[in-house]
Amino acid sequence: MTTTLSDTDIARDTDVVDEAAFASPWVTIVWNDPVNLMSYVSFVFRSYFGFAREEAERLMMLVHNDGRAVVATGNREEMERHVEAMHGYGLWASITKADV
């Protein structure tokens, strides 16, 4: 499991290597937008992440009411895959380091 991570980290700058040493996680954030339907956002969460209906609805309402929700946590590569997938669905997603 660590093989892929270390291989990737070696190619990055030392700051990232230091960060990775503390296994600091990354998160995928979905942001509120005026276009996407609530039903669609919830449907995407269920279909893509496999969330149960209740969890998908909870996260969708977080996006709607708070303007954003963390929908996934993990390593950077994995979060980038999620963000790319969300962009494929037309959702407004970004990746950032998790708050420590």
């Binding site: 005026p34 276009v35 303007g67 037309g90 407004w92």
Partner: peptide, 22 residues
């Protein structure tokens, strides 16, 4: 569903709407 979303996002942007939630 994806394409309808892309169409709506594009029309909204043409209307000058990107991130105003209301």
């Amino acid at each position: 569903l994806r394409h309808l979303t892309d169409l709506r996002l594009t029309i909204a942007a043409r209307l000058g709407v990107v991130d105003d939630p209301n």
